[in-house]
């Protein structure tokens, strides 16, 4: 009996040791299970379309499913809060964007971008000021003049209070020098509000605006960006028109703070490969976003530069860190 127990015990220990060795080997190989890919904006928007394709491409590189999940709300705040609270094991990554800077700047989240680790930038694109296809304003100047004549009357739709499109709209507002009403209608309703005439204009990423503009339902007036985009060569930049507003929408990937360096390295590699994949390049060409992977120092610079721009826009409108009363 005694011997039997001992043999069993030895066997068990042996098996356990082998199992842990085996598991150790497996663990070393990241990733071993599906990765959650959190998208801060709703179904059908540009963040969603581009994010899903990138997730798909990354899944091919990494050999595990990369599952897109939309966590919508607070201009990105819901996703960033979720990411910050997730385990830093590389199995939760967020499709971050300029909205990280803006939602923290406006005070929707009580932390800033340094509370997360960043894989780096994937792409960027201009945001577009558009009006209804049959609107009376043919040019941005007419729109701005109308605004000056009727301050506090025009309504501009955005993807949510504190989102990048909201802050871009604030930048446009600052540049025009007259007050407007910002309608935080969300991705799903942003274009619809313009079509129904409820809002006079919308600010949205080029990707999300392009399709309806092509169909003549929307008219793109101007873009607060540095240079014209090849997909929409007729849309002037705000600078060309003499308005000082320049905020592009970058999209990047972020992971929770403290994710192991090896895991981050593997994810970075997958991100860059996926960003340069044929499928993603096709989408970029079609929709007009620019693929430009930036990692490490380069991306830190971008964050610092855009962060400063966002803060100055917000300060100009008096909404920086709008605290709770």
């Amino acid at each position: 009996m005694y011997r039997f127990t001992k043999t069993t015990l030895t066997g068990l220990i042996g098996a356990f040791a082998m199992a842990s060795c085996f598991m150790g080997v497996v663990r070393a190989e990241f990733p071993e299970k599906a990765i959650e890919f959190v998208i801060p904006f709703g179904a059908g928007g540009s963040a969603d379309i581009e994010g899903r394709l990138l997730a798909n491409a990354m899944s091919k590189v990494l050999g595990v499913p990369v599952v897109p999940v939309n966590k919508v709300g607070g201009g990105g705040a819901v996703t960033y809060t979720h990411l910050k609270n997730s385990k830093p094991d590389g199995y939760t990554i967020a499709w971050a964007s300029t909205s990280l800077l803006t939602s923290s700047g406006i005070g929707n989240i009580p932390f800033d971008h340094s509370a997360l680790d960043h894989l780096g930038q994937v792409e960027f694109q201009p945001m577009i000021v558009s009006v209804k296809g049959n609107a009376k304003w043919q040019t941005f100047k007419e729109f701005a003049d109308y605004c000056k004549a009727n301050p506090g009357k025009l309504k501009i739709a955005n993807s949510g209070t504190g989102s990048a499109t909201h802050i871009a709209a604030v930048a446009v507002e600052n540049a025009m020098g007259c007050k407007v009403i910002h309608l935080p209608v969300g991705i799903k309703r942003r274009n619809a509000t313009v079509l129904s005439g409820e809002a006079d204009a919308a600010v949205g990423p080029l990707t999300a605006t392009r399709r309806l503009a092509k169909a003549g339902k929307l008219r793109m007036l101007a873009a607060p960006t540095a240079e014209r985009n090849p997909v929409a060569p007729d849309v002037p930049t705000m600078k060309e028109l003499g308005y000082d507003a320049d905020l592009d929408l970058f999209r990047s990937l972020a992971v929770p703070k403290g994710t192991p360096a090896a895991v981050v390295a593997r994810l970075k590699e997958a991100m860059v490969t996926a960003a340069n994949s044929a499928a993603f390049k096709d989408l970029a060409k079609k929709n007009g976003f620019t693929i430009k992977p930036l990692v490490g120092k380069d991306f830190d610079q971008r964050l610092a530069k855009d962060g400063a721009v966002v803060i100055s826009i917000m300060k100009g409108a008096g909404i920086y860190k709008s605290k709770t009363k």
Binding site: G74, G75, A77, V78, N85, I109, T161, T324
Partner: peptide
């Protein structure tokens, strides 16, 4: 989280309730 501003409501500091 409040869909408009991201303010946490009735979550009692529970991370799981945030979404």
């Amino acid at each position: 989280q409040d869909p408009m501003m991201g303010t946490a409501r009735f979550t009692f500091d529970n991370v799981n309730l945030l979404s």
